[in-house]
Structures are given as structure tokens and as C-alpha cells.
Design a protein around this nucleic acid. Structure first.
Lengths: 193, 193
DNA sequence: CCTAAAACATGACTTAGATCATAAATTACT
DNA sequence: AGTAATTTATGATCTAAGTCATGTTTTAGG
């Protein structure tokens, strides 16, 4: 979906400062959010306060549709990772979009499929694989759309929050993977080879 | 999607006996499968042979679209749980369906959203919660669309394969949950209250 | 450039759940 | 009904990863 199109339709941009909570678990979904600029993370938090990163969304992407489409309260927090500009599209407008923009409908199906694929992969990992395997899998996933020499700009804590592990375990794990030559690190940063 | 409609279009039903493997990880997706009758389970298997149930599909449902839509090899096995009748719809026909049956497109979006929702919930569980919490969550999920007094017809092993736990852990866990009154069991069977 | 904060590191100890082994209870089948 | 196969049950270890405590290094901001 072209963000400009939404703006042309008269939808308003809104600014969200870094760390702003866009929505919370339990809230009834009213909008789908399109990202003009910035970055948003979607996290669930367990009773004991442990965070799990369900996804990260960047400029050009949108989030919040599944809950809206099946009419169930959100189950995650979405929080601005950086200062961000979003367009909140309400239910009716979103359904209009699906109906009247045939390309969008197809694009949405593909997007949902991609996310489903990622979640299936992660589920298998969390259910069956041990720490190092899990770690290697997301690292490779994150490195996938990067160019050789580039380094991952995620912290060990974030890797922990994506894998359900603890920082210490991630630290020890990356070290081990680097020793085994399965990943390359330069001054602690994980680098694409 | 109405299965009858597909049959009317001239698509052929095919029989799959119980335990038949419909597709395997690594295969290039060519079809979306609609279930006329029977039941299919989708499982991933780790290197050490541990199975994880990604989903169970029943009559009227379809499976295999995500991989097809994003053109990536399957990552799970799909296996007939019972003798089943399926219709394999090829890529072109499936895209036709999306384009020309406006209701189907919307239905597909909803279906994908629902599955995404379930996977997000399970990811949070596997990443952050401990055994008993995980157990209680799927048990409640499974009990959800059942009527009071009815009993779950899944084995402890299947619960284990849905939660990433081991049978023994599931057995001890359900016992504990029953003692705490969080679930009700009758002769080992978990019963909806 | 200097300081504070964030991120990374490492050792010691604890624990939830896996693993292994063995048996009782159900269920399914001839 | 009787036997085999599956499922449930339970105790005894074992171990990967969590937890806690205390550094060191890197990064960011004035």
C-alpha cells in the first residue's frame, strides 16, 4: 500500500515519540496503523515481566490488522522504537481498501503469509531446539536481507527477547557460535559473511 | 470457500489414507489443499526427531497457502490423521479464486489472521511461560469451541507435541492443574466445565 | 574528551523440565 | 472375553539454561 495514497485520501499523519505506547493488550482494535516513518516493535509481556518481541515494523509496513480483522482484543503492546509518523486507518476505511484496491488485498494476503511463515519457523525453534540452534536461526534470519560485511544492529538483549532466552545465555551462545565459526563477530558485533 | 463449488469447476477429489504424507519440508509448493472430509495435521520435526504440531485442519478448511503464496519451500510435514478426501488446487486456479471470488479473498484474509493470532499466542507461551501455564493455555484453547461436559479427545502426547513439552511433563502438569481445580478430569480425560 | 549509561562478559549456584526406567490402566481388535 | 497395543502414571536422576552477583567494555551525550 502506498502511504501517499492514504494521505491523498485525506487521512491524517500523527507523530509518536520514541517509546510511546500505541496500543496495549486487552484494548479493542479500532485501527490499522500504516508507518510513514520510524519504527515500531510489537511485544508481549509475561506475568513475570519477561518481554517477547513478536515483530518489528518499519516505514512502509502496517500492523494491527489481525486483531481488527477477527475482532479480538490485541494481545501485544506496540511501542515506537524511534520517533515515528503513523496513519491510523479505521475499520471501515480498511475494509474499503481491501474491497476496492485489488492489489492491496493481494499484498495483504502475501504479508500475512510471510508473517505466518516466520512465526511457524520460530514456533518450531522455541518448541524443539536448544538455545544455540535458536540463536543461530534468528541471527541468520536477521542477516538474510543484509549485505556482506554489514553488522547486525541488535543488542544481545533484543536477541534474547526474540528467542525467549536470557541475555547471559545469548552472550554465551553467540560466543560459542563464533568460536565454532558459524557466525563472525567483530568487536562483539555480529557481521554478515 | 465452498468445496462443492470447486468440484463443480471440475476439480478432482483425491483420497488419502490415514498416515499418508501429503507433503514434506523442502518440497516446492504447487497446490493448496481443500479438505472435503477427514483430518490433516501439520508437523515440523527437529533434527533430534521431536515433533511439533503446527496445526490441525478439518473438513471445510484448507492448508498449504502461505508457502505457495510467498513461493518458499514447505517447512512442515502434512499428514492425514484419518482417511481423507482432498482437492489439490494449483497455483493458477488458486490465484483465480482470490481474484474472482471476492468473498473468498476476504475469507482467506480472515483465516490467515486467525492463524497468525494463534501462533502469536503460542509464541508468547513458548518463549516466556513455564510448563503448567503453557499447558493450561492450550487446554483452554482446545476446550473453547466445545460444549460443557464434553471431553478432549487428544492424548497427552499430542498436548506435548503442541506445547513443546514432554509426555511425562504433560501428565504431571495436567494432574497438578486438576488438583488446583483449574481443569477437570474424569478418568484421565479432560472435561469442559 | 570525559563521564554516565548501556551493553557485554564471566563465574558460581539453582532449578524446571528432560531423560530413563518401569509399571498400571485404558483402548482397540480378533 | 481375552490379548496386544497404546496411553497414562510415577519415581530417580541429569542437565541446559536460568538466576544472581560482580566486573569490564563500548556507546552516547554534554
Amino acid at each position: 500500500m502506498n502511504i501517499q495514497k492514504l494521505i491523498d485520501k485525506g487521512l491524517k499523519l500523527k507523530n509518536y515519540p520514541k517509546d510511546w505506547v500505541i496500543y496495549e493488550p486487552g484494548m479493542q482494535p479500532r485501527f490499522v496503523y500504516f508507518i510513514k516513518s520510524g519504527e515500531v516493535r510489537m511485544v508481549t509481556v509475561s506475568d513475570e515481566g519477561k518481554e517477547f518481541i513478536q515483530g518489528v515494523f518499519k516505514a512502509g509496513q502496517y500492523f494491527g490488522e489481525p486483531a481488527l480483522l477477527i475482532d479480538r482484543p490485541y494481545l501485544a503492546f506496540t511501542i515506537a522504537n524511534k520517533d515515528s509518523q503513523l496513519i491510523a486507518v479505521n475499520k471501515e476505511d480498511f475494509f474499503e481498501l481491501i474491497k476496492n484496491e485489488p492489489d492491496f488485498s493481494m499484498e495483504l494476503i502475501r504479508t500475512l503469509s510471510k508473517r505466518l511463515f516466520y512465526k511457524s519457523m520460530m514456533l518450531e525453534e522455541l518448541a524443539s531446539e536448544k538455545a544455540d540452534h535458536r540463536l543461530l536461526t534468528i541471527i541468520n534470519y536477521l542477516l538474510n536481507d543484509m549485505s556482506v560485511g554489514e553488522s547486525l544492529k541488535v543488542t544481545r538483549q533484543e536477541l534474547a527477547d526474540m528467542t525467549g532466552l536470557r541475555v547471559e545465555t545469548v552472550i554465551r551462545g553467540t560466543k560459542l557460535l563464533a568460536e565454532k565459526g558459524l557466525i563472525k563477530t567483530v568487536k562483539g558485533k555480529i557481521v554478515k559473511i
